[in-house]
Design a protein around this nucleic acid. Sequence first.
DNA 1: CTGTTAGCGCATTCAC
DNA 2: GTGAATGCGCTAACAG
Lengths: 331, 331
Amino acid sequence: MIKRDKGVTISQVAAEAGVARSSVSRAFRHPDMLLPETVERIMKAAEALGYVPNHTARALSTGRHGNIALVVPDIANPFFPPLIAATQLEADRSDFCVFLGNTEEKPAQEDKLLGRFAGQVEGLVLASPRLSDERILAHAAQRPLVLINRDIKGIPRVLIDSGSGVRQAAEHLAELGHRKIVYVNGPHTSWSNRERRSALRSAARKLGLEIVALPPIVPTYQSGHRTVDAILETGATAAIAFDDITAQGILAGLAEYNVAVPERFSLIGCDDVLGAVTYPALTSVSNRSAEAGRLAVTLLMEALQSGAIREARYVLETHLVIRNTTGPAPA
Amino acid sequence: MIKRDKGVTISQVAAEAGVARSSVSRAFRHPDMLLPETVERIMKAAEALGYVPNHTARALSTGRHGNIALVVPDIANPFFPPLIAATQLEADRSDFCVFLGNTEEKPAQEDKLLGRFAGQVEGLVLASPRLSDERILAHAAQRPLVLINRDIKGIPRVLIDSGSGVRQAAEHLAELGHRKIVYVNGPHTSWSNRERRSALRSAARKLGLEIVALPPIVPTYQSGHRTVDAILETGATAAIAFDDITAQGILAGLAEYNVAVPERFSLIGCDDVLGAVTYPALTSVSNRSAEAGRLAVTLLMEALQSGAIREARYVLETHLVIRNTTGPAPA
DNA sequence: CTGTTAGCGCATTCAC
DNA sequence: GTGAATGCGCTAACAG
């Protein structure tokens, strides 16, 4: 049992200050229970010895660790970094540390990580989880849990309603004269994907558009690229992709086939994570991932303070950002 | 002291299995010290009761928590997500959890986070820290610490030698006939930035190139964009930017001034995080951030196992990836 | 091999 | 207001 730390303990401070251990503890946790002069004497002794409260011992005694965990399916997807940063910033405001889990889109890995975190966090934030409802509910039963982009009744959740943006996308394409549109599905366990697809379907019905849905894929540049053949085979004149990364792959694939965008084909992404860096600049549905992260942590902290899990369902609306990959349907 | 967990303890399992508490502990930590049949009986009892070892109690007793922390200056910078993902994956292989700290390029925040993590991690990985040598050494004295892209003697470190790639960049520009080149500095506390600048300077001397260095900036799209005026004022025909994000901003700025790239101006980035998504596709110096993350954790785990901090300095070479933002110097 | 005994460092009842 | 005693849940000697 080799300890690297010098390990100044509460006892040593107590001895130095000539008080009982409990008083040292109080000086740090409930200073108002002690005479100001006593507190000062203890603090001075602590300072002198370089005492630092032992986080682990405190956690064992109180059951509180001051940590939360954030689990995401793919850090490398530009949708998540802003969410992660916002989550951390908000957690920091309450002096919480953040464990980060990357599941590589694998439900099993997600389950495993949640188990690992379980013992040392007050609460969890799951962003776009790929896990089953049952497993999520099981974890939520153990400790406070907030979902982002997953709609499970009874669990506090923050939903980025890309549906509103996708509707605008459909209307935009309809106005441009497109009649047949491809939807490139994302992961089939993704709530956002179902939301986008169904928003598109219902909008299409109203607008008299024909929708062709392609099989689910893991949303990556490569996946998007590979799907171009299937897209062109449909004879559609426009496509809406599950996300910008996929759209970016599609854009590259179209370029290789010398299909001019937007002259011969129109393309719309989702999440607006690429800004105007593609060429042509990608028309996309806005995202509000940073806000979602911040809000999720706020909800979690409220739950921790109140001790009660409040049913809550926050919806963040989105809109279409029109750039240069959409144009009139070819004659 | 309200505990939400049902809190099945080692004692309950011991009672159920009809053994001492220590035997239960052994069944989990050193099964080979017990009779196989005893182990099995204990495990069955544990299973039945839904026992799960209490991480905190174990940590208090052993001083080992199974956590490491990774601190980065800016998650949103695409250089880091692959590094973070690789770090986690490697930590996962040893069943370690990863705390993530985002410092927003602020040394003070870095120091604060390190203090917060201190009590509950075995070791630290600092990627591109902006903190002073003194503070880093102080933290390294407390517990194992591995650096990425920071060269401090005595501390194990993984360095991505962008110098080799920058040298190639200088040669590439020289061959294309450029004589005067701007270097757009990154953060002045960045080791990588100093490395790149000095590699460029020495290469320039050999090649007879003139280098104009611009003041340090925080590497963002906006910063790059704002620096375009200064770049054009120098009368140079090419620029090498601290990183791709900055280069991307510069590219946008040049486009606004109708400065054709690469016909009238050549531009090279660093880190190659954008792939071929800019237009024109950006010539850039390759990065090996994922490898760096993986290696750093490997070193950290070795240090934890051996208990000794081995002086180590790993250098990962880079090279120039030529795309479409570099061309012959205008006549 | 297994049970007994002591802590790990701190927070928190109780008395005083 | 402060001290003494107890427990958080587990691990690690030390016996047997």
